[in-house]
């Protein structure tokens, strides 16, 4: 199998796995983990768009003529994914803080347990 196709397939299946986890998860921590898996899939997909077979990393260590570029990997998706990883960290951290508050309010981090014991206030 072609390596590019394999990488695409990997990113693709990671996104779908994560999305399934987000849809079916009851435990909030697991939902956050599933979001993390999904994010890893998106990052893999993005980075793979800059993938070229037998490319060298985009760091200039040898001289080259600008008319005939050597086979550099595309630096732009890598730079964008760097941003996306940081945003992913932010989402995870902030939602964990929200889970802490949720746990204080409800005494549990499972969504269905709260629905059953819900009392209408006011």
């Amino acid at each position: 199998m072609n390596l590019t196709v394999l990488l695409y397939f990997g990113g693709f299946s990671l996104i779908l796995t994560g999305f399934y986890g987000v849809l079916t998860g009851k435990n909030l921590i697991r939902v956050i983990l599933a979001l993390g898996i999904m994010e890893a899939g998106v990052n893999l997909l993005l980075v793979t768009t800059g993938f070229k077979p037998k490319a060298i990393p985009p760091i200039i260590v040898k001289s080259f003529k600008t008319l005939s570029l050597p086979n550099f990997a595309d630096p732009l998706p890598q730079a964008l994914v760097l941003t996306s990883i940081v945003i992913g960290f932010g989402i995870t951290a902030l939602s964990l803080a929200l889970i802490v508050k949720y746990n204080e309010e409800n005494g549990t981090i499972k969504m269905d347990e709260v629905e059953n014991s819900e009392e209408v206030v006011e």
């Binding site: 985009p58 760091i59 200039i60 260590v61 550099f72 630096p75 732009l76 890598q78 730079a79 760097l82 941003t83």
Partner: peptide
């Protein structure tokens, strides 16, 4: 910058 990714970022 020799590292093109950081020059982009």
């Amino acid at each position: 910058a020799a590292n093109v990714v950081t020059s982009v970022v």
